[in-house]
Amino acid sequence: MTLILSLVVGTLFAGAVYLMLRRSVVKLILGLILLSHGVNLLIFLMGDGLRRGEPAFVDSVTGAVSANAADPLIQALILTAIVISFGLITFIMSLAYRANQAVQSDDLDDMTLTDKL
């Protein structure tokens, strides 16, 4: 499982870098989305071992957590990261849309107004 997930993370990163190197704004954003997915999976891999079926809930009688419980912290981290990237991607998509309206182009090379002397 770890191996498969590692390969998936690598593929997502590779795809993200490829897309981000394109000149199209849409592909750039798609690359950012892939990148955030890759990072989320990477954090998932960094947890205390991959286990299934045992959430980290406290036993109501003994007050102890099962020794085989999954790492809850990475889940919290990923949830936070997902929410943040959701907000940011929404913002950047609407920004790209407005930029496309103003520039009438999807090409980053046409967006050099602020760089020119």
Binding site: V25, V26, N100, Q101, A102, V103, Q104, S105, D106, D107, D110
Partner: peptide
């Protein structure tokens, strides 16, 4: 507005 590939000089410039 459909996403356009490339700005062409003949097209009118969109108002800011």
């Amino acid at each position: 507005y459909p996403m356009r590939k490339k700005a062409t000089p003949s097209e009118p410039v969109a108002p800011e």
